[in-house]
Design a protein around this nucleic acid. Sequence first.
DNA 1: CTTACTTCCTCTAGTGACTAGAGGAGCAAG
DNA 2: CTTGCTCCTCTAGTCACTAGAGGAAGTAAG
Lengths: 142, 142
Amino acid sequence: MQSIGMTIGEVSKRSGVKVPTIRFYEQIGLLPSPPRSDGNRRQFDGQDLRRLSFIRHARDLGFEVNDIRELLSLADQPSQSCHEADSIAQRHLLEVEARIEKLSALRTELQRMVQECDHGRVCECRVIQILGDHGECRHETH
Amino acid sequence: MQSIGMTIGEVSKRSGVKVPTIRFYEQIGLLPSPPRSDGNRRQFDGQDLRRLSFIRHARDLGFEVNDIRELLSLADQPSQSCHEADSIAQRHLLEVEARIEKLSALRTELQRMVQECDHGRVCECRVIQILGDHGECRHETH
DNA sequence: CTTACTTCCTCTAGTGACTAGAGGAGCAAG
DNA sequence: CTTGCTCCTCTAGTCACTAGAGGAAGTAAG
């Protein structure tokens, strides 16, 4: 673990976060502003790398930036109760489950649309018909 | 079906598309600009209502505006082959299936995080630990 | 030392699909 | 006539980046 003087390109490669995104994270205060070299280049260290990896992993898991902000400030105070971190994760789990359900219903309807289309003309195309006539839709959630 | 002189509020209620969103759709050319009354109010008719319902249904199904633009122009030419409409729907189905798979993997990892957290202090919280240490993650896709 | 190439810097603007709000005008009921 | 609702236009904000301009600094080869 190289801990002194990584360039933004290095820390980008190691963390998997793109260079402009790192600058963006600094701008919105998700990552502390690192010191600069004589030539005004950002100098990152191991802690920055860990923080970026944390952010990236949380983003991959679909956490929003504000959630991550909270999770990071929790991670910075290790002796506190983790109750809040847990509830953020729980809330997020519920959201993910809701989205899976909605998408599954959607898939069913799309499958039906595609199956029923026998590739004739538009005027008898089930895809167009079903989209146009909401009453024919068996999708329950809307 | 009231076919002449619906206000934007009426057509909004009937289609389920919010008033500012209707104006937005007109602005981006998804909905043709309706005629105006003496008092400069928009006057919608039954065709506008059908078009809005079509758009709303497609948006509910997750189609992007550019897809809808294409689907609408297909629906406007009913004697053409519906091959294109079908392929848009097929492509979209594949995307939805991919998203469901990704979300399912994610749910598994979130469930594991939440289960393993025994509500102690942050320094031993599995939620924080797993987010911080990517190596511990059993999520295959990243 | 010069040249070329890459990486870095800041800044602005664009993305998608809206949403919010300001500031004002029309319309219908009491 | 006043109150309150809906409507109008316009601008700016949302989220999480991404793209591009225009320029400076670092690095490797000749």
